[in-house]
Structure formats: C-alpha cells, structure tokens
Nucleic acid binder design. Structure first.
Length: 933
RNA sequence: GCGGGUGUGGUGAAAUUGGUAGACACGCUAGACUUAGGAUCUAGUGCCGCGAGGCAUGGGGGUUCGAGUCCCUCCACCCGCACCA
C-alpha cells in the first residue's frame, strides 16, 4: 500500500464523523480535563496558516489527555458579532447574519480539513439568539447588582436599597457622591432613587467620549480613525461626549490583582495585567484656585515633594477650565482644547513634542501659600486620577521637560542631587528646601505631609487605579441589544415591574431586529434608532416607552463563552449547574498575547461576579494559560521606479534608481524569483510591465511582517493540506519552533516533515512491492531502548508543551528504527499510539494495518519502562580548564577516586597538561569532568 | 511615551537544573540507483586555518573551575495601549 495521504485522511475523517468519535459526554465518572482555544472571529478572509497553530497544540494535548484516561472537553465556537461584518454590510448591503453564517461555514470546513477533534455538537455562536439570550441575562444580573466593599463581593441591589433605607449612604458613598440620610432616601422620588442606585450598579449609565465624524454622521471605533481622520473618506473627526453603559470593573481591581497569584500564567502575562490595573498608593490633595470658588484635587504618589510644586496641569477636557481661565487667555485655551479634541489618547501619550497652554489662573499652595500657575496640557489624561496633577519639575521627567520648554522656574527640593540638567527621580536621600519637612527622609516626609494634610483637611490617603470602568455601549447594529427600556428617561431592565411590559416583552432574548439599512441613527445613535417598531414599545398599561438602541461590544459574548460549552443547549440556565460543577475551570487555555488585558481581564471580572452571585463555584475562568506566538508572513516586494507606472527594477539593482517598494503576492514568487508572466497577468495595469533584471532574473525583496491580505503574504492551510496532507501540515506547524514564539512561515521547510511521515510509513510497507513488512518477532533490547527513550521524551515534551522537540524525537525514532531494520509489531504498535495525537489520520490507518479494531484515539497511551533505557556506562566529556578536549567512558557508578587516575593517565589529558601538575579535578557525577591546571 | 517579549549557522531551531553549543530539519555540495526525478539512499556542511589549533550564542563588562543559561549595561526588532476581535 502506498502512502496516499489525501485518500487516507478523507477515509478517517468520514469514520470519525460516522462513529461520533469526538462527541464528549457529560458522564461524570471519569476525571475531567477542559482544553479551550480562544474562539475566532469568523472574518471574510478565512483562516491562514497562522490561525491553527494554537488549535493544533490543543488538539495534540487533548488527544494525549484522552489517551491518558481523562474525559476531555475540547470545544470550538465563533465570536460572531463584530464590526467588520457591519462595515462589510455598509459597503455591500449584505446582511451581517448572512455573511457571518457564510464565513463560519468556511471556517468549519477549513478546521475540519486539518483533522481537529472538536465536538461540533457543542458549537456556539455569540450572535445566535439562543446564546445572546444569556449574555443579556448576565447583563441584567450586573445591572441589578452592586459591589459591597465591606464584604468585598457583589450582592443583589436589594441589599443596597435596604442599606440606604436604614442608614443612608454615609458608609459606602463614592468620592464624588453627596451624603444622604435614611430619612432623605425615603423621601426621594423614583427618579432620584434610581439615579443614586446608578452610582453603584455593576452595569451603569454614564457619559464618555467617543470619536465623532460629522461628515459620516456617525461614531467611529479607534480602528476606523487613522492619522486623525476617518479611515473611510478621510474626514475630520473629534471627540464627543455621549451617554454610555459601563461595567464597574474598577470595584474588582484588588481582587483581579490578588487572583493572579492562583493562576498558572506566565509572569509576563500577570505583570501586564497588574500594570494595566495599575494600583498605586498616594494622596489626594486639594488646591484652592486664587480668587475663585473652585478647588483642584490632584492625586500624587509623592506627597513628600509637595514643596517642589512649580505649576499645575489639568487635562484639557475638564469642565473646570472654562470657569478659571482668564479673559486674556481664553482664546489660546480654546484653541488648544480644539487641538486636543482631534488627538487620540495614544498620540497624546506618545507625543514627544511638548505642548500646553497657560490658563491665566493660579492655585494657592496649601502649605506655603505660594501662587502656582495653572496650565493645561495633553500629557495629562482626564481618565487617570482626577485629571489634574501637581507638577514637580525637579523630581519628574515630564514635568521637568514641560518647565524647561515653557521657561517655568524650577524649585530644587533635592539639594545637590538635583543638577538642573535633569529631574532627580531616584527614591533615596532627604527632602530639602521644604519648610517643615526639610531634612527628612522620603518616608518621614511622607508621613509628616499626611499628618499635615489630615490636620488641615486638605485631602486623604488614597489608592488609585489606572484601570477604568469598561465602556459597554456601541452605536452599532451587529451586537447584542440591551434588555433595557426607558421610562421618563430612566433605564429599567425589561422584567422590572415598574415598566410593566406585556409578558411576552419581558422575555429574553431581546431579538436583534432585521434592518434594511445599516446607516447610523440620528445624533450619533446606532442603526437600531432608525427602527420605530423596535424603539417604541407599548407596555401593558398602554404607555409608550423607548428601548435602548445601543448594542453591546464584542467582549460581551466572549467574556463568558467558556461556560456555555458545558451545556450548550440548556434553555433553563446559562450553564447547567451539574455540568458546571463537573467541568469547572478551563484547565488549559491557549491564545495570543494580544488578549492579555482585554478579553482575559473581562472574563475574569465576569466570572468573579457570577461567583459572588452564586452561579458558579469557582472564581477564575482559566487555570493555566499558554500564549501562542504569531506566525508571520514572509512578504515579497517588487521595486517600481519612481515616476513610472509599470517599470520595475530587481532588488539587487534598486540602489541605482529611486524606487517605491510594492507588495507582490507570494504565490507569484518562487523563493525570491518573480514569475514575470504570472505577475503581468496579476493586474491589468502590469500587463505591459518592463523589468530591469539581474542574471536574467527578477529578484524580489523579502520582509517578515504580519500575515495579512493587504500584504499579499497569506498562505491558506487548505492549499498546504491538499499538497502534503493534514498530518504533515499539523506536524510542520509544531516543528517550526516553540509554540509561544513568533516565527515566519516558510512553505519550503515542510518537505522534511513530509519525508519523515513517508519514512515512517516505510517501516510498515515495502516501497517496491507495497506489501506489509510488519513482523511478529520479539523486539531486541536495542529496539526497546529506542522506543522507551521516545516514550519518555514525547510524554515529557507534551506535558511541557514542547511540541517542536517531540517532532524531532519522532524523526529520531524513525531514523533509528530504519537503521535497525525494525518492522516489529510490538514496537510499531506503541509508535503509532505515540504518533496519534500529532498525526491522527496516518495513525488510524497504520493502527488498522497492524490488525487492530476501533479508533486508535481510544487506545491507552504507552507506559514508559525505565529499565529498558538504563545503561551501565556513561561517556564523560573531559575538559581542561573548562575547554572540552576528549571523552572517557566510565561506569555510571564511578566515583571521583575511581576516575582521577584514569583521567590523568589519558593521552589527550597528559598532552594538554604539558607536564604541569594539575590543581584539582572537578567531577560532577553523570555530567562532566574538568581538570584545572 | 508606558507596558511586555525576543535576539544562537545561509534558514527554522535544540541545549528541560550553570556542565560536550548547533540535536532534528530546510537549503547547499559531492556521489549512488534510475529511462526519468520535486522519489530513495550515502557522505559532507558554524566561521577562520593546509594543519595544529583558534574564534563563535545581538554589543560591552562581571560572577564562576565552567555562562546561550546568572548579574550589570547598551543596541536592534516584534507585540499591546482601553470602540478590531
């Protein structure tokens, strides 16, 4: 029989489907193991070879675990709501539901092509009403819950109402919230009560800035704003305040930090989350504005430097600015604010050029009474702290640069350590020139300042977070509708008795209505605002209420999807409690680092809320996280001579011309040599292209970049599978390198892996006769040694996710068995089982060739037997002064006294000693010998 | 700007705990078999050198009997930064 991989792979794919080989039961007698891939967004471009990298790893691991006796859950689904489908709908008029379904179908075909063991009966799609019903349900839970800081957990909002009614809000009020008594609470009208509760709900309504494009009459995502203008049409954009839903993730900041200690994630990933949350301890401190009512509150981590304050800086979006700006400065300030409105936060943070504007106003130093000029600048962000800073140029780099740029005199509070050349940012030594804290250490000064702040009631100790509450509204069509209606401008969830909806309107899901146009609604609202039949809803009493017209963001559906796989068709609950108790956390979660602070933080937050409310019995969603690297594209370039339409010069000669590099499709290039005829056919405008060649060839430029359609460097796994088979493709992706590392795709290297599988096949079949050559002979000690060395290596490698070295070991096994001319069933049977997780199709075929029945995926994993690989002797490397010079073999039991005379008598050693006496001999048993001269 | 990561042959990489640097492959060179080769097999292949040998893990410095691995410092590249998912 020949290794006809296409036929063999199709045969076993059919078998797996027919026999439900990958169906997972909720049978709770076996130990469980939950393996999960970050589910994909089904884009129109389909999968490229970079996507399956992590999926192959989890496929191998889940097959391995299953053979080791676990009940393994390894599901797949689709993050099917999202902006690209809606943009595509705007361009082509096709409904996102239609294109999404088409894309998903294509994804499933591509995934199946690779031979994954997904249980498709558990597939979920976030855009399916049966799924988003429960996304809406969780939103409702968030809306009706608050975070009780005393108990450090979420509770139903009823407990807060009871608390307000009994004792007012004095004990749990937020910083910017006015105090009210129980009596006051009980006298509030409905609107006031709801407004007060809104300050505490985990899902709440507030205002936030969005990108607004006047010309397109719509709100834009960050992605849609490129270089300060809209991506579509290049129109100007600016920030605009809108009413938005938020999730109060900041209340969970401390628990999100603490929870990291319980997780098996890389330190880098944990560090990124910690930095994102950005907990810092410091002081809040109020400065009075001179001759005004207003105060400016700042947050500082260095209250000890308060006597070094030379100016204050406010974020340009603060409302306060209009009130304090002097008439002379008004025009400049307004012009500067206008400039900042056009700037993204990223640009503002990354900007090296210093800019700012003086308001004309002064603050009064709370201790010295000095007058401090108040500036505004884009480097202070409204969202962090209070949006205002006290600037200490002698102790902070940015403040220093700002002071120098605007010629502000710098007060030195660090004595000789501040040179005037740069800010002194070290945290040691004493504070000088600072009134009552002069001469104190930082620690003493900080303590003294805190006491002074408290005594004068100027502020307090404060913990600040960089983390902000999560914006949860999108002015879009293709997302989950909110289960929210407004009555008299007050938001309610649909089941609340206060809005008295008809019974059928109180049911989830609130179905996304069909639209004919994806055009935005009036005043920046989403497309749903255009549909009167959706917006207006009549309740049981005949009153007309209005629905929320925003939709939820992409991360709504992805924050809890791992729970749905446990009981994907449950109509009674978002997850079946029994199933949830069995499957618990995801044991192994695999995905890219790009989700480090978005998806992974939101999922952890949602899980903690569901835990607090008693719906799940674990607090962290993903026990172990493995980050796969990116497979980059290898782009090819042609060089068009500047000023011409279709004249190109080969890469080696491009220096002689002024050229513009252009991406060229990698399929038109063999290695680096351009196929000129194909290139001419590629684009009509290149039909008559002319080329300056080198050695009669056109050589392309090469660069490693992200794999993307626009760079023409995309390689489709379907093409690879067709040419080499899925087993080769799977093993080659693993062979490329460590899973967590980024690496460029190079189709040429795949030959080696393909040759290995063919060679493995030839252990079973004679090449010429195509007959089986498997024998029943008993294996030799040497053959058993090779096999068990491999069992040990592969098992250990899989457990530490080192799949590239596993593939190498399979090659070594195959090479050694070939050299030994071993065709013995006793050896090959175990070899096939070892190979099964990596190359399941060929493994099934050869398993049956050996006379076995059923699927090899159900076989037990081979056990390693140590006695087969034990050796009597060890070849020791012998080094002279640390340099390796020769090898000498000793029994593994040999001790230092045994080896010393032999080593010193060795020819090579005596030669290198050159008659000099040796100082000592370092002997590390089982490792090496080093002779020091 | 802030945060995280990565640098080893022509290429992808290995070296798991500080102990023989380059396993396993790609590519390349030579040869065998063959009507043929994009099949298969054999030998070689880090760099310099005829050789003995020397030099080599991004650059520089350090700790150690011994450093790709630990420490300091510099450089380059990649990823993320809150409405892409």
């Amino acid at each position: 029989m020949k290794y006809n991989y296409n036929a063999i792979e199709q045969k076993w794919k059919d078998y797996w489907v027919k026999n439900n080989v990958y169906q997972v039961s909720n049978s709770y007698d076996k130990p469980k193991y939950y393996v999960l891939d970050m589910f994909p967004y089904p884009s129109g471009a389909g999968l490229h070879v970079g996507h399956p990298l992590g999926y192959i790893a989890t496929d191998i691991f889940s097959r391995f675990k299953k053979m080791k006796g676990f009940n393994v859950l390894h599901p797949m689904g689709f993050d099917a709501f999202g902006l690209p489908a809606e943009q595509y709908a705007l361009e082509t008029g096709q409904h996102p539901a239609v294109t999404t379904e088409k894309n998903i179908k294509r994804y499933i075909e591509q995934l199946d092509n690779i031979g994954f063991n997904y249980d498709w009966s558990r597939e979920i799609q976030t855009s399916d009403p049966k799924y988003y019903k429960w996304t809406q349900w969780i939103f409702t839970q968030l809306f009706h819950s608050w975070y009780n800081p005393g108990l450090r957990k979420a509770e139903p909002i009823d407990s807060l109402i009871a608390l307000f009614a009994a004792e007012g809000n004095a004990t749990i009020k937020r910083d910017d919230e006015a105090v009210f008594t129980a009596a006051a609470w009980n006298s509030f009208d409905e609107a006031t009560k709801r407004a007060k509760l809104m300050q505490h709900r985990l899902a709440y309504l507030d205002h936030a800035e969005v990108w607004w494009c006047e010309a397109l009459n719509t709100v834009l995502a960050n992605d849609e704003v490129v270089n300060g203008v809209s991506e579509r049409g290049g129109h100007p954009v600016e920030k605009k305040k809108m009413s938005q839903w938020f999730l109060r993730i900041t209340d969970y900041a401390d628990r999100l930090i603490e929870g990291l200690d319980t997780l098996e994630w890389s330190e880098a990933m944990k560090e990124m989350q910690r930095n994102w949350i950005g907990r810092s301890k410091g002081a809040s401190l109020r400065f009075q504005v001179k001759d005004k009512e207003q105060e400016i509150e700042v947050f500082t981590t260095r209250p000890d430097t308060v006597f070094g304050v030379d100016f204050m800086v406010l974020a340009p979006e603060l409302d306060l600015i209009a009130n304090i700006t002097t008439p002379e400065q008004k025009a400049d300030v307004e012009q500067y604010i206008q400039y900042v409105k056009s700037r993204s936060e990223r640009e503002r943070m990354a900007e090296k050029k210093i800019s700012g504007c003086f308001t004309g106003a002064y603050a009064v130093h709370p201790f010295s009474g000095r007058l401090i000029p108040i500036w505004i600048s884009e480097y202070v962000l409204a969202g962090y702290g209070t949006g205002a800073i006290m600037a200490v140029p002698s102790g902070d780099d940015r403040d220093f640069a700002f002071a120098q740029h605007f010629g502000i005199t710098i007060t030195n509070i660090f004595g000789d350590r501040f040179t005037g050349e740069a800010a002194y940012t070290e945290k040691d030594g004493t504070i000088e020139n600072s009134d009552f804290i002069s001469g104190m250490s930082i620690k003493e000064a900080t303590k003294a300042i805190f006491e002074a702040i408290a005594a004068k009631n100027l502020g307090e100790r404060k913990v600040n977070y960089r983390l902000r509450d999560a914006g949860f509204s999108r002015q879009r069509y293709w997302g989950e509708p909110f289960p929210v209606v407004y009555k008299n401008g007050i938001p309610y969830t649909i089941e609340e008795s206060a809005v008295n909806l008809k019974p059928e309107d109180q049911q989830l899901p609130v179905v996304l209505p069909h639209v004919d146009s994806y055009k935005p609604g009036p005043e920046g609202q989403g497309p749903l605002a255009n549909i009167d039949s959706f917006v207006s809803i009549e309740n049981a009493a005949g009153e007309t209420l209005t629905r929320e017209t925003n939709t939820m963001p992409g991360y709504a559906g992805s924050s809890w999807y791992f729970l749905r796989y446990m009981s994907p068709n449950d109509d009674a609950a978002f997850v079946d409690p029994e199933a949830c108790k069995y499957w618990q956390q995801v044991d192994l979660y695999v995905g890219g680092t790009e989700h480090a602070v978005g998806h992974l933080l939101y999922s952890r937050f949602w899980t903690k809320v569901l835990f607090d409310l008693g719906y799940v019995n674990f607090e962290e969603p993903f026990a172990k996280l493995l980050n796969q690297g990116m497979i980059q594209g290898s782009s090819r370039f042609v060089y068009r001579i500047a000023g011409t339409q279709d004249q190109f010069v080969s890469a080696g000669l491009k220096k002689q011309h002024e050229v513009n590099p252009l991406h060229v499709d990698v399929s038109l290039v063999d290695g680096v040599v351009l196929d000129i005829e194909k290139f001419k056919q590629w684009r009509a405008e290149y039909a008559n292209a002319q080329f300056i060649l080198e050695d009669d060839k056109y050589i392309c430029g090469v660069e490693t970049e992200k794999m993307s359609k626009s760079k023409y460097n995309v390689v489709n796994p379907d093409d690879i599978v067709k040419e080499y088979g899925a087993d080769t493709f799977r093993m080659y992706e693993m062979f490329l390198g460590p899973i967590e590392m980024s690496k460029p795709w190079d189709t040429k290297g795949i030959e080696g892996v393909h040759r290995f599988l063919k060679k493995f096949w030839r252990l079973f079949f004679d090449e010429q006769t195509e007959q089986s050559i498997v024998t029943e002979e008993a294996p030799t000690a040497e053959e058993l040694k090779v096999l068990h060395k491999t069992i040990k290596k592969i098992t250990e490698d899989i457990e530490r996710f080192s799949f590239n070295t596993s593939v190498s070991q399979f090659m070594i096994l195959t090479n050694e068995l070939s050299d030994l001319k071993c065709h013995k069933k006793a050896i090959l049977g175990d070899a096939v089982k070892l190979l099964c997780p990596f190359a399941p199709h060929i493994a099934e075929e050869l398993w049956h060739q050996l006379g076995n029945e059923g699927s090899v995926t159900a076989a037990d994993y081979p056990e390693f037997v140590a006695s087969y690989i034990e050796e009597a002797n060890k070849v020791y490397p012998v080094a002279i002064n640390g340099k390796h010079r020769t090898n000498i073999e000793f029994p593994v039991t040999a001790e230092q006294t045994d080896i010393e005379p032999v080593v010193l008598a060795n020819d090579v050693v005596t030669k290198w000693l050159e008659g000099k006496p040796h100082k000592k001999i370092i002997f590390v048993k089982g490792k090496m010998i080093n002779v020091i001269v």
